[in-house]
């Protein structure tokens, strides 16, 4: 299975409020983040929670969000494990938006750091 979103991909989470179980918490809906790495495939809980036994298996990604993107303030990160269909690639033009560059810089730092440490 080829991962649709390689590490470093900027993504956006879906924004709707489904009338069924989902593992995308409300606070992280319609938000922009960066893929840290794939976590391994599993059944989509939105379907499997119905108990019908025909849930698709999707890749799960650890996705990192900036606190200020989630809450409008704060300097911490939140990482969530999200199924592939919760995500779409974030192709938004943001030349006027420093945020994306910040995210990329941070990620480059993180990846550089982890490569050494791990």
């Amino acid at each position: 299975m080829t991962d649709r979103f390689p590490p470093g991909t900027r993504v956006r989470t879906f924004h709707h409020d489904p009338p069924h179980h989902t593992r995308l918490p409300r606070y992280a809906r319609g938000k922009r983040g960066v893929v840290v790495e794939p976590e391994g495939p599993d059944e989509l809980p939105d379907i499997s929670a119905r108990g019908s036994g025909d849930a698709p298996v999707e890749q799960i990604y650890a996705v990192r969000f900036e606190a200020r993107d989630l809450w409008g303030e704060g300097d911490h990160h939140v990482v969530l494990d999200l199924w592939e269909s919760y995500l779409e690639e974030d192709l938004a033009e943001d030349s006027e938006d420093d945020l994306a560059e910040d995210l990329e810089d941070d990620l480059a730092d993180d990846l550089g750091g982890t490569a050494d440490e791990r």
Partner: peptide
Amino acid sequence: VREPRAVLAEFGVELPPGTQVTVWDSSAES
């Protein structure tokens, strides 16, 4: 997930300024 520094302070954890805080929300099977 919203104010980790304040919550950590209530647990008695005082982090030096500039410490990068990451909150891991276990939303799947990890």
